[in-house]
């Protein structure tokens, strides 16, 4: 049983990590908890559903088109909701409230368009998975782990190696200094939103291959993503991967001996422990700052 629980933990963890990295990239440029990130995750799944089932596009094309549309959604959220606030130099609490507003608005919009009922992205009959080292794994699960880790590392490489990635780091560490050397921070914020939102959309689509989609799926996802970020260290990218996997494994291994209903409790207990004992997370954001 332990093998199965570890596997479940890795699957859940790689999705959490993918949500957390997108969240982190956006967080680094705007410095507030963008709750609307969760609804972009849900929107990604619904976009894929619409493209694949309603427009009957090919699955891979649907996947990438949904990512592009999730990126556009992220940009639109920033342009319409946060940028006007930035112009007025709003305090950070206002951003947080605005991000909740965006979350609720888009969630209800999804519900209006697609209805509140559960939809399924996966088609075809259900098959028993393969047995590897005492754990059962299905093709879809291999795909989920593989694609989410690949996307995670692509996101990481983007931040580390590309010019835009460096610019994002610059804006994150010293917004004024970045402007002095000629970095257009508004543009960088848009790039961060586009990349981060595409990654959230990807996470939403991947998880929907395994479970179902429903309009309210975003809240739990963003909460877990945020817990993963805090555990790993807010704003830290390797921390997001570590935090995601840590959370996924802890949740699943935690219920080895107690009832499965306690899963969410475990996640939130971890959050509280970290907030109390190590608010900067395992790989605190300070080390990252010093490096640059």
């Amino acid at each position: 049983m332990i093998q199965q629980l570890i596997l479940s933990g890795i699957i859940a963890g790689s999705i959490y990590a993918l949500i957390a990295i997108g969240f982190t990239i956006i967080y680094r440029t705007i410095k507030f908890f963008n709750f609307a990130h969760g609804v972009v995750y849900a929107a990604g799944a619904y976009l894929a559903y619409a493209l694949f089932f309603l427009l009957k596009l090919n699955p891979i094309l649907s996947f990438f088109l949904s990512l592009a549309m999730a990126a556009l959604l992220g940009i639109a959220i920033d342009r319409l909701a946060y940028r006007p606030l930035r112009k007025h130099n709003a305090p950070s609490l206002i951003y947080l409230i605005a991000s909740f507003g965006v979350f609720i608005f888009i969630q209800n919009l999804i519900q209006l368009i697609f209805g509140a009922q559960i939809l399924t992205l996966r088609t075809g009959p259900v098959k028993e998975g393969y047995n590897i080292l005492g754990a059962v794994i299905t093709n879809i699960q291999v795909l989920i782990i593989g694609v989410s880790l690949i996307l995670f590392f692509l996101g990481w490489l983007f931040i580390l190696k590309t010019k835009l990635g460096k610019a994002i780091r610059a804006v994150s560490d010293d917004p004024v200094g970045a402007r002095v050397v000629g970095i257009n921070s508004e543009r960088i914020i848009l790039v961060a939103f586009a990349i981060g939102s595409a990654l959230a959309g990807a996470a939403g689509i991947l998880i929907s291959l395994e479970t179902n989609i429903e309009p309210t799926m975003g809240l739990n996802a963003i909460l877990k993503g945020i817990i993963a970020s805090i555990v790993g260290g807010v704003g830290n990218i390797p921390g997001a991967l570590f935090g995601g996997l840590f959370l996924g494994l802890a949740e699943n291994l935690g219920i080895w001996k107690i009832q499965a209903g306690w899963k969410d409790t475990i996640a939130f207990v971890i959050l509280i422990i970290f907030l109390l004992l190590r608010p900067s997370g395992i790989m605190g954001v300070k080390t990252e700052k010093e490096k640059i």
């Binding site: 049983m1 309210t216 699943n252 009832q259 499965a260 209903g261 969410d264």
Partner: peptide, 20 residues
């Protein structure tokens, strides 16, 4: 007996316990 919460979507851990 095993219980789950209303919004749960991932039942693998619960089912692993049942299976054992």
């Amino acid at each position: 007996e095993e219980s789950f919460e209303r919004k749960e979507t991932d039942f693998r851990a619960l089912l692993s316990r049942i299976k054992s």
